[in-house]
Design a binder for these strands. Structure first.
Lengths: 340, 340
DNA sequence: AACTCTAATGGTATCGATAACATAAAGATT
DNA sequence: AATCTTTATGTTATCGATACCATTAGAGTT
């Protein structure tokens, strides 16, 4: 007895829509992409047919014939898990969605070779644009990006070596400004950041701290600079380590990840008075920073806006603007609260 | 004088690789997809040529001819911004990446019609699978999903109306278990959750709480049930509201979002002793929950594992397993700490 | 009336990879 | 040696939408 194989219902094609509307496929194509080019009557018939057949266009075919209009963009962020990038991501997806562009996402895990293979993987789908949070790339990655022929936006830092478009704040300036703020109020200001060798941003922030010290004519004491991985525990641990130093540290600038939160919680546990015993300041205005009894002074970075404007630049390029577009500096603010 | 138009460097095609390796395009195609089918010599020549030309395959073309092998999957989560889904997302991307499958991402904003349009938008790219965090879908969304002809994994709840594959824990069981835990230790246990009408999960959790009360023979007091949006402030506000009730509430179960954290911070601010004055428990083991001086008792949901196993099921389907696959219950644990 | 011009629509070739089929060469079997 | 297998490779048609060019109908111009 022959077994009945249920063939997968084939997708409705543009041809089918055309037949249903008694038009040619070409006219349907036009009606969908540039409605102003067809008569009202035709447009209506097409829309009707699309609806009745639940037609879902095939962008593989469209993108194949018309490269650069795949309506698919790609973003690479250091970590999918890290909520820091979530706001930027939302800015990107929301802005692109308006134009019907969807987003592929990947996490590079802060590794250059992972970013490289991710870029290669993404390019196989012929995205119409790429958004990269990192500004440091392997040589082969740069080669791939240059050859891709689509707009690239970097959002991690105001890099001096942009590939194409840049939307960011200056990690150097932000860290320097906060360090200056602390140096005006406290004598011995320590710095806790992420590992400079692992990230351009961490390096820039530390550079900013050092520059502020230099400008203020204060000595750089390497014992007051800690590099650590992210995480609450590391924030807490860096804090206790710095508190043992003599002469006593007055203030600590936690320049990355959730380190400040971990430190503040440690102060709670130990009963240390912030800011009297120790002042602390953070980088990035986590929503929770303002919830502590001693609310946390920190830098506000417009993360959502970075995503939105990055996507907008991308759209500008897709609209045909081939000219040079200077880097966009979205700036930052110090949010002065009670902890420093 | 004719202006020189710099044509965008066309991409290297499989044809070019074939010519470079002195082979046919078909053999190159085979060498890349099923290396065991070509001779070692050929494989080597192809790899060499691919490298030398920096060939990036065009999956638009591949996916067009061989539907279902677009090597692109899609995930829809309620909110791109919410870190709750980040772990699941990471589980998905990491598992899919091993097989060279990339992920499109979108946030439905908890709205059925947004999910629907997102599904339609994603389907235009002919993904080889879909991962949905919601289990409630509009009728048209269901129609689209059924017609898509690709595996679908739902991860939000152990729904009774699965479309295809399901990987989750039971929101009902988890909430009921925690409520039972609290009812064994406290007399008047209140419930704070997200708005039931807006989310199936919120509804199930509240149902679990009510079921626990019923099983324990305790009355349901609607004054002890609060529905609220997420966020620290709402957690804090719900707490203070419940603390005004007479006779006094002993314990509060915060069943969603970061509500517990907000409540715990409010207790810190007001100097309320947890758990003596008020016991509190949460849903989801946020990393910060264990960092408080009074660490927070909560439910641990294996979020990363949900993503990983969801992706694994998807891969199983792509490997040709057409059989019925029963829902996977990843379970949950109560993490007993000091707050309740 | 003959002409041009514009707006609306249709026909055909094509994008790049792959399924299906065809072929060729080497080894195994009688 | 003739035939059958097996393995490796090549040829052709095709996936679905769109660029490009051709065509038609009607309005506007002289």
């Amino acid at each position: 007895m022959p077994q009945t194989i249920r063939a997968r219902a084939p997708h409705v094609r543009m041809k089918d829509v055309a037949a249903h509307a008694k038009l040619s496929a070409m006219t349907v194509s036009r009606a969908l992409r540039s409605p102003e080019q067809v008569s009202e009557e035709t447009l209506h018939r097409v829309q009707q047919a699309v609806k009745e057949l639940a037609y879902v266009p095939n962008r593989l075919a469209g993108g194949l014939k018309a490269p650069g209009r795949s309506q698919l963009a790609a973003a690479i962020i250091p970590s999918v898990r890290d909520s820091l990038f979530a706001a930027t991501l939302q800015g990107i997806t929301e802005t692109l969605r308006v134009k019907g562009i969807n987003l592929m996402l990947g996490g590079s895990g802060y590794a250059l070779e992972d970013e490289e293979s991710l870029i290669a993987a993404f390019l196989t789908h012929r995205p119409c644009g790429l958004l990269l949070h990192n500004t440091k790339h392997s040589p082969f990655a740069r080669q791939l990006l240059r050859g891709a022929g689509v707009p690239i936006v970097e959002t991690g830092d105001l890099t001096r070596r942009p590939i194409d478009l840049v939307v960011s704040y200056s990690n150097f300036d932000a860290a320097k400004t906060m360090a200056q703020y602390l140096l005006q109020r406290y004598d011995r200001v320590a710095f806790v950041g992420q590992i400079a060798a692992q990230s351009e941003r961490a390096k820039e922030r530390q550079r900013g701290y050092r520059a502020a010290l230099k400008d203020a004519g204060r000595p750089v004491d390497n014992a007051l600079i800690i590099e650590t991985q992210g995480g609450y525990e590391n924030g807490a641990q860096s804090l206790t380590q710095l508190m043992q130093i003599k002469p006593k540290v007055d203030a600590i600038f936690f320049a990355g990840d959730v380190l400040v939160i971990g430190a503040m919680l440690e102060c709670n546990r130990r009963g240390w008075d912030v800011p009297r015993q120790i002042a602390i300041a953070g980088f990035d205005d986590w929503e929770i920073a303002r919830q502590f009894e001693t609310s946390i002074t920190t830098l506000q970075i417009p993360r959502y806006e970075i995503g939105r404007r990055a996507a907008e630049l991308l759209l500008r390029r897709l609209d045909g603007d081939q000219g040079a577009i200077p880097p966009i500096d979205v700036g930052f603010h110090i949010i002065e609260r009670r902890s420093a």
